[in-house]
Structures are given as structure tokens and as C-alpha cells.
Amino acid sequence: MSTRVQKWILSGPPLLYLLVFFAVPVGIMVVASFRYAGEFGGLAPLFGTGDPDEVAGLTVESYQRFFDDRIYLELFAKSFVYAVLTTVACLACAYPLSLMIARSPKKSRDLLVLLVILPFWSNFLIRVYAWMIILGPQSLFTRAFNGLTGAFGLEPMPLLFSPIAVLIGLVYVHLPFMVLPLYANLEKHDPALLDAAQDLGANAWQRFWRITFPLSLPGVYAGAALVFIPALGIFAIPDLLGGTDSMLIGNLVKQQFLDARDWPFGSVLSIVLTAAAILFAGLAAWFGRPKRA
């Protein structure tokens, strides 16, 4: 059998998977974005809407709507800011944690990794509801938080249904996706490199900044992509923990499909979101590409 045939056979299953679960849905969405909304939700039939200018029931009206009103692009920008903040906060929490796990004795590492993924064993919504209690007005957490900010002369403020609650929720939910790739990377570092650096005069900070950190960048990029992309499109967290002003692009998409029942406009939003996600995945893959053989 030629290697070409082998290649195609081997790449068959993943290609099929991508086709069924990615290419086809995106294709359907692209088509939907050019169609009219149906009177009672969904999509209008392709023919016979009665509009004399209509060409087979297709229109760019939903795209016009998206670009005409600045509010949608602003919502994108806001979601982008939340996703960036989430990624940065996840990185800040996950890096020390991953480093600690990677440098703990071999025996305890597996247990610690298990603890990181333990939350996955319970339902996502239950965990977010738990945060509603933690962030509630009467909770110890909220009182401690307000005590702390009060020490800096700030007025006490409710946490639940605020942007802070949304951010906390976003970071909480996505943290394991940052920890796992980072840990997988850090765990592979050769400890002899740190010995060598120290031997050659590097102090603890220089060893981290010149050796550990640059070598961990592929893990950082992978984790950043795994956090940033879902955080950009998430709707459950702002729905549950956010206030009226905490709507993100994910909520708008959900609203268009489920509440406003404007599928074409929902599709336009989804396409822009997917394009952004692909862009960031591509950037992460490019920065994280292995530089060594």
C-alpha cells in the first residue's frame, strides 16, 4: 500500500469528524445567515415570500444590521475584553499552581492533577449555582471582600450580578483548561537545565525568566487558546452570575436563536464569533509551534 493511501486512511476518521461536526454546521449557518427570518421564528421558506425583489429568498440584510448598529461591535469588544481578562487571570492563577504540581514529588503529582479536574465530576450548572451562594450578599466571601475593599476606603458593594461575579465565574470555570496544558508542558522540563542555570550564576528569578518561562510558552499558548475561545462565546455564566449590564456576545446569540427567534441574525453573530475563534486558535498554534525538532 502506498504511503499516500495510508495517509488518507489514517486521516479519514478525524476528517469525517471535522466534516460532520464542524464544516456541515458552519455551512448550514452560513446559508442561514443569508436567509430571511420566518414569521414565527426559524427561517422563512427559500421561495414564495412574496417580495418582488427577492432572489431565491436570500438577503444580506442581517449583515447590514450587524454593521449598521455600533452596539453589536461594541458587544463584541466587551466580550473580547472579558475573554482577555479571563485568560490573563487564569494564567496568573494556573502558572504557580502548575509549577507547584510539576515540581512536587512524582508520587503526589497524579493526585494533584486529579484534584484539578475533580470539579468536572459534578454538573456545570450546579457548580455555577454554588458560586451564586458564595457570591451572595450574606456570604462570608462577600463580607470578607467588602471588608478588604473597605480598608482602602471603598464603599461596600454587592458581588452577585456584577461584572466581578461574571469574571470570577469565567475564571473558575476555565481554570482547569489552563492548568492542564501548562502542567503537561512544565512537567517535561529537564531539571538539569535549572541546575545548569544556577551553576552558571542565575538566581531564582533569572532561572524562571530565562529558562522555565520561555520553555513553557507552548503550554501558555495552548492554555490561552483553550480558555480564550470558549470564554469569548460563553452565555451561561453572564446569564446566571451577571446583572443586566453583563450581557456578552454569547448571550446575544442565544437570545437571537431562542428568544427573538431571528435565526439569520443569530447566524451572522455566530459566524463572526467562529471567525474570531479560528483567528485566535490560528494565532495560538502559530506562536506555540514547536521551535525544536
Partner: peptide, 20 residues
């Protein structure tokens, strides 16, 4: 005196060259 402050350098068996 910690290793980084000793005027002693080591050639490791694995060489420990910085791969990046």
C-alpha cells in the same frame, strides 16, 4: 554560599544546554 554565588562551573553529563 549558594551554587550561583560560587565561582565554580559544571559541565553536566547530559550537557544541559538550553534548548531554546
Amino acid at each position: 554560599v549558594p551554587p550561583e554565588a560560587r565561582n565554580i562551573h559544571t559541565v553536566f553529563q547530559s550537557y544541559a544546554l538550553f534548548p531554546h
